[in-house]
Amino acid sequence: MSDVRLRGISKSFGPVRAVRDVDLEIERGELVAVLGPSGCGKTTLLRLIAGFERPHAGCVVVGDEVVAGPGRFVPPEKRQVGMVFQDYALFPHLTVEANVAFGLAALTRSEREALTLRTLELVGLQHKARRHPHELSGGERQRVALARALAPEPKLVLLDEPFSNLDASLRAGLRREVELILGDAEATALLVTHDQEEALSLADRLAVMREGHIVQVGVPEEVYERPASRWAAQFVGEVNVLAGIAHGTGVETELGLFDLRAPASGSVHVAVRPEQLELSADHDGNAEVVAREFRGHDVLYRLRHEGGRTVLVQLPSLLLHDVGARVFVRPAASAVTTLVD
C-alpha cells in the first residue's frame, strides 16, 4: 500500500506547463528522488504536494486522504507534510530549539520539550539547542531544517535540493547522515535534486523528470543500466551512444561486438557506459587519448576514435595512459548494453 500517490498531476504558470500529467507512488518508509535538470518542474512538483500550489488537474493522496483533487484542496498547514527548503528557511528570530518546536504548537509544554530534545538528538544537535540559526554552520543549519521538518512526525518529508547550498566536501558526509536520520525516523521522503550522483547514491527509487514529465521510474541500478531513452542515459551519468547493427542478442558497432539485454535486429543505437569499455596501450591502436580526468579511484578518458567520434572510457586508476598516447579500445568482457532511441 503506497503512502503517497500522485495521479495525473498538472500545473501551468501562464503558458508554461511546469508539471504535466505526473503519476508517482511512494511506499511507506521509502526515499524517492526526483532527478531532473533545473527548470524541469521538480520543485513545482514538491510545492504541489506540500500544498503551496494548486494543481490544475489530477489528485494528490497523502496517507488515506485526498489533499488535492477536483473540488478539494487541503491547505498546507493541514497536510502533515514536512518540507526541508533549499536554503533551509530557518526562522532567524528563533533559537534552534524554538525552530524545531515550531510545528509542535498543539502539544503540551512538556511533550513539546521532550519531542524537541529527542529530534535534536536524532540529528546530533542537542548541544546547540540555544543557538540562533546565524551562529550555525551550513551543515548544522541543514540538520536543524531536517529536525524541524521531522519533529511533527509528518506523513511525508519533502526535501528540495537539500545539499545544493553545501560545500562539495561536506556533501557526501551529510548525505549519509541524512539517509540514516530519515531511516531512523522511518520517514517517507521525497527528495528533489539535479545532482545525479546524489540521487543514485541516496534514493531507494529514482524518478527522472524532463520538461514536466516523469520519463523513467525505477531503482537506481535499473535507471542507470537500462535507461529508457537516450536523454535519460545522457542525463543520468556519462554515456556513449553508438550506432550499430543488431543480430539477435549481439550488436556490431564500430567499437566491436556488444551483448544486448534484449534481442533485436537491424539498425539500432545502444547506450554504452564508459566503464563498459576497456583500453590498452597500442602503437597501432584504433584511438588516441585526447583528455584525461583523474578522479582518484578511477580515471575518465576522452578518446578520439579513428572513425572520428569521441569515446568516453572509465577505468580504475591502476595504470594511467598519457594524453596523446595511442590506445586500443574495445568492449569490456561483461558489457551488456541497452537499446535507446
Binding site: 510545492r47 498547514e77 498543539a106 521538518a149 511533527p152
Partner: peptide, 18 residues
C-alpha cells in the same frame, strides 16, 4: 522576509494568522 519562511511555517501547521 523571504516567502520561504511563510511556506516553512505553514508546512509546520501554522495558519496565516499564526
Amino acid at each position: 522576509i523571504p516567502r520561504q519562511l511563510d511556506d516553512a511555517a505553514r508546512g509546520l501547521g501554522a495558519d496565516r494568522l499564526d
